[in-house]
Simulated assay, not measured.
Amino acid sequence: MKRIVLVALCGLLGACSGGDQEELRQWMVDNSANLRGNVPPLPQVKPYEPVPYDAEGSLDPFKSAKIEPDAKYKQAAGKGGAFQPDFEARELRNSLLEKYPIESLKMIGYMNINNRPLAVIQVDNKVKQVRVGDYIGLDFGMVTRITDKGVELRELIQDSAGDWSERTSSLYLQSKEGSNK
């Protein structure tokens, strides 16, 4: 039985190896004679033309004064606008929470005393109570609303032209799980 299978296998291999494939070769030569790749020409490269840059008279985008005011002398820098803060009142308040950026403050508690909400704010290792109308943060942030979930603020920020505008920010209640993240 093994011999019959071996003889049949050899016969099949012999039939495939030789033979007349001249017709196939002639067809390949005829059809590939006129084949040429069609690649479109590259676009014309324009020469580089440098553009002169004149930084004189422009505002430096990397100055910290553009981002946040740190002195009362900035108040004369621009037109001011309708929202210009009272720098002297800030100095008179001398609040601890106004000396830290809002990002470093944590709301760690909420209380409701005599139907007046209070937020408990922690900065470094100090804890302060905050009411609606108190100021916190470096951007003249006034507390406008206190809920059991967070504190809403109205901040005054100065743009690069020296104009003051309002923005709203929030400080959310931090749980013990959230403070370890």
Rank of each mutant, 00 (worst) to 15 (best):
A33Q: 13
D20K: 09
P41M: 08
E103H: 05
G37Y: 08
I108Y: 00
E56Y: 15
P61R: 03
V120Y: 01
S32P: 01
V29E: 15
K106T: 03
Y73F: 11
E103W: 02
R116I: 12
A82I: 07
Y53T: 14
G57L: 08
D70K: 11
Y53N: 09
E68R: 15
S64P: 01
F87P: 02
D20C: 04
G37N: 12
R90W: 10
P41T: 14
P69V: 06
G80C: 02
K99S: 08
N34H: 10
A82L: 08
V120S: 03
E22V: 04
L35Q: 13
R93N: 04
V39N: 09
F87M: 12
P69W: 05
V51T: 15
A119R: 04
D30F: 03
N31C: 06
S32L: 14
P50T: 05
D70Y: 11
N34W: 04
V39Y: 13
D30M: 04
F62P: 01
K63Q: 09
A119S: 12
N31D: 07
G19S: 07
G37A: 14
A77H: 07
M107H: 03
R36L: 11
L92H: 05
S64G: 07
E91N: 08
Q44G: 02
P41Y: 07
E68V: 13
A77P: 01
K46G: 05
K63W: 02
A33P: 00
S95A: 11
F87K: 01
Q44A: 08
A76W: 09
E103P: 01
G81C: 02
N34V: 06
N34G: 06
